[in-house]
Amino acid sequence: MIKSGNISLGHSVKQIKGNIVSNMGGEKVMLSVKNGKYYNLGEIGGEIWDLIEEEISVNQLVAKLMSNFVVTKTECEKEVITFLELLLDESLIEIKDSL
C-alpha cells in the first residue's frame, strides 16, 4: 500500500467510489458520508477528480492536464502530486504501482 508522501509519477491513481459529488459554481464539491466531511476540490481539483474516475498513471494525468492548461511540466507534476497526497490522506483515492 502506498502511503502519503511517497506518490511518484510511476504510480497509478483512481477515485474511491461512494462519495456524493456535485458541481457548484464551477467548483467540484463532495460529501463523504464515511468520513463525515465535506470537501471543496475547486476548479482544477475537480478536473483532476474527473480524470481519475478510471485508473490512470500519475504521468498520464499530468500529460492530460498539460494539454488543457497553461502550466510547465515541473510545476504541474509537483502540484498534482501534492494534491493527490491530500486526497490520499482523506482516503478519497487509491494509489497503486502502475500496471
Binding site: Y38, G42, N68, F69, V70, V71, L86, E90
Partner: peptide, 16 residues
C-alpha cells in the same frame, strides 16, 4: 484553447 492553471487545493469541512 488552454485554460489558466491554478494550484489545486482541497478545502475540508468536518460536517460532524
Amino acid at each position: 484553447m488552454k485554460k489558466e492553471w491554478k494550484k489545486p487545493e482541497l478545502q475540508v469541512l468536518d460536517v460532524r
